Amino acid sequence: MTTFKLIINGKTLKGEITIEAVDAAEAEKIFKQYANDNGIDGEWTYDDATKTFTVTE
């Protein structure tokens, strides 16, 4: 398992979430479901060097 981080730069929600996932594809699926569940819709980026996803509304 690898640790992945999501940085949320939303209009109403900001913060960071860290999860353990098998790979970046699994982490992205989990993070996008979390964002969808919380009404966050924005532009996604991923930095493989730091294993960090960012979503900006």
Results as ranks from 00 to 15, higher is better:
46 Y>E: 01
55 V>M: 12
22 V>D: 08
45 T>F: 08
56 T>N: 09
6 L>R: 00
1 M>H: 15
33 Q>W: 05
41 D>H: 15
15 G>M: 04
32 K>D: 12
35 A>S: 11
16 E>S: 13
56 T>R: 14
29 K>R: 10
11 K>P: 03
13 L>H: 10
38 N>C: 02
43 E>A: 11
5 K>C: 02
19 I>D: 07
30 I>K: 11
53 F>N: 00
53 F>W: 14
1 M>K: 05
28 E>S: 09
43 E>H: 10
30 I>A: 04
51 K>D: 01
6 L>H: 00
4 F>E: 00
10 G>M: 06
28 E>P: 00
36 N>F: 15
11 K>M: 05
44 W>V: 13
1 M>I: 11
6 L>W: 09
18 T>L: 15
13 L>D: 14
43 E>P: 08
31 F>V: 14
31 F>H: 01
14 K>Q: 05
13 L>E: 05
9 N>S: 10
27 A>H: 00
8 I>R: 01
55 V>I: 10
53 F>L: 02
12 T>E: 02
27 A>G: 12
46 Y>C: 02
50 T>Q: 05
27 A>T: 02
16 E>R: 09
17 I>N: 14
24 A>F: 13
34 Y>K: 13
33 Q>C: 03
57 E>A: 04
4 F>R: 00
54 T>R: 15
45 T>M: 15
46 Y>T: 02
49 A>L: 14
48 D>R: 02
53 F>Y: 15
13 L>P: 02
12 T>G: 09
9 N>H: 14
49 A>P: 13
19 I>S: 04
26 E>T: 09
29 K>H: 13
41 D>V: 14
36 N>M: 14
25 A>C: 04
15 G>S: 12
57 E>R: 09
2 T>M: 12
10 G>H: 08
40 I>H: 14
52 T>N: 14
11 K>A: 04
23 D>E: 11
35 A>C: 02
31 F>Y: 09
19 I>F: 11
2 T>H: 15
34 Y>S: 15
37 D>H: 09
54 T>F: 01
25 A>E: 07
25 A>K: 15
19 I>Q: 05
35 A>M: 04
45 T>C: 04
14 K>F: 06
8 I>A: 08
10 G>T: 09
7 I>E: 06
41 D>Y: 12
4 F>L: 01
14 K>Y: 14
5 K>M: 03
50 T>L: 15
33 Q>L: 12
18 T>F: 06
54 T>Y: 12
11 K>G: 07
31 F>N: 00
46 Y>S: 03
33 Q>G: 15
50 T>W: 07
25 A>R: 05
31 F>S: 05
55 V>W: 05
46 Y>R: 07
4 F>V: 01
14 K>L: 14
13 L>S: 07
21 A>V: 08
53 F>H: 03
22 V>Q: 13
41 D>S: 07
2 T>P: 02
33 Q>V: 13
15 G>N: 11
41 D>E: 14
23 D>V: 14
12 T>V: 13
8 I>S: 04
49 A>Q: 11
22 V>G: 06
34 Y>H: 11
20 E>S: 03
27 A>C: 01
40 I>V: 05
12 T>P: 15
38 N>Q: 13
39 G>H: 09
46 Y>I: 07
47 D>I: 09
3 T>Q: 03
27 A>P: 01
47 D>C: 05
37 D>R: 12
55 V>C: 01
36 N>W: 07
1 M>W: 05
38 N>V: 02
41 D>P: 12
14 K>G: 09
5 K>S: 07
50 T>D: 03
24 A>E: 05
45 T>L: 08
53 F>I: 01
19 I>A: 12
1 M>V: 11
18 T>D: 07
49 A>W: 04
4 F>M: 01
41 D>A: 13
32 K>S: 11
7 I>Q: 11
39 G>D: 03
9 N>C: 03
14 K>V: 12
35 A>D: 01
55 V>F: 06
6 L>G: 03
47 D>N: 14
34 Y>G: 01
34 Y>T: 06
40 I>D: 01
32 K>L: 14
38 N>K: 12
10 G>C: 02
22 V>I: 13
34 Y>C: 01
12 T>D: 11
42 G>H: 10
4 F>S: 00
3 T>L: 07
15 G>I: 10
41 D>R: 12
48 D>G: 10
44 W>Y: 04
56 T>A: 05
20 E>D: 14
40 I>G: 01
48 D>F: 08
25 A>D: 11
13 L>W: 14
57 E>W: 13
42 G>Y: 03
34 Y>P: 00
50 T>Y: 09
24 A>S: 12
24 A>K: 12
40 I>P: 02
30 I>P: 02
2 T>N: 15
35 A>F: 03
56 T>V: 14
53 F>M: 15
48 D>H: 13
5 K>Y: 07
42 G>Q: 02
32 K>I: 04
22 V>C: 03
52 T>M: 10
54 T>D: 05
17 I>W: 02
35 A>P: 00
4 F>T: 00
39 G>C: 02
31 F>R: 00
55 V>P: 00
52 T>E: 03
54 T>H: 15
11 K>Y: 12
2 T>F: 11
19 I>T: 10
11 K>V: 06
32 K>E: 15
57 E>S: 06
37 D>Q: 11
54 T>I: 12
36 N>A: 11
35 A>Q: 06
26 E>W: 13
23 D>L: 03
5 K>V: 06
57 E>T: 13
3 T>H: 11
20 E>A: 07
23 D>T: 11
49 A>K: 11
6 L>F: 11
54 T>V: 05
7 I>A: 11
19 I>W: 10
36 N>V: 15
15 G>V: 04
14 K>R: 04
50 T>H: 14
45 T>S: 12
31 F>M: 04
34 Y>L: 04
29 K>P: 14
33 Q>D: 03
48 D>Q: 09
9 N>Q: 10
27 A>E: 00
36 N>H: 15
14 K>S: 06
22 V>H: 07
26 E>A: 15
28 E>A: 05
52 T>I: 12
50 T>R: 14
36 N>I: 11
32 K>P: 00
27 A>I: 02
48 D>T: 08
25 A>S: 15
1 M>E: 08
42 G>V: 03
31 F>L: 08
31 F>E: 00
17 I>T: 10
29 K>N: 05
41 D>L: 09
21 A>L: 04
29 K>Y: 07
5 K>F: 09
20 E>I: 09
41 D>T: 12
28 E>L: 11
54 T>A: 10
35 A>I: 04
30 I>H: 15
22 V>L: 06
45 T>G: 06
3 T>G: 13
56 T>D: 03
3 T>D: 12
6 L>P: 00
25 A>P: 06
29 K>G: 04
48 D>E: 07
41 D>Q: 09
27 A>F: 00
40 I>Q: 08
7 I>N: 13
29 K>S: 05
12 T>K: 08
32 K>R: 06
4 F>Q: 00
38 N>D: 04
25 A>M: 14
40 I>C: 01
28 E>R: 15
17 I>Q: 07
24 A>L: 08
39 G>P: 06
55 V>D: 00
41 D>G: 11
39 G>W: 07
32 K>G: 03
20 E>H: 02
2 T>G: 04
24 A>N: 13
32 K>Y: 06
34 Y>F: 06
20 E>V: 09
18 T>N: 10
5 K>I: 06
51 K>A: 13
47 D>P: 01
9 N>M: 13
37 D>K: 15
9 N>G: 10
5 K>A: 03
22 V>P: 05
40 I>S: 11
17 I>M: 02
38 N>H: 14
52 T>S: 12
28 E>N: 10
22 V>Y: 03
9 N>K: 13
13 L>Q: 14
45 T>E: 15
14 K>T: 05
3 T>S: 09
9 N>I: 10
54 T>P: 00
46 Y>D: 00
45 T>A: 03
18 T>V: 09
52 T>D: 03
46 Y>P: 00
12 T>W: 07
26 E>H: 13
37 D>Y: 14
15 G>D: 05
12 T>I: 10
52 T>Y: 09
7 I>V: 06
6 L>S: 01
38 N>S: 07
39 G>F: 07
20 E>P: 03
48 D>V: 06
47 D>E: 02
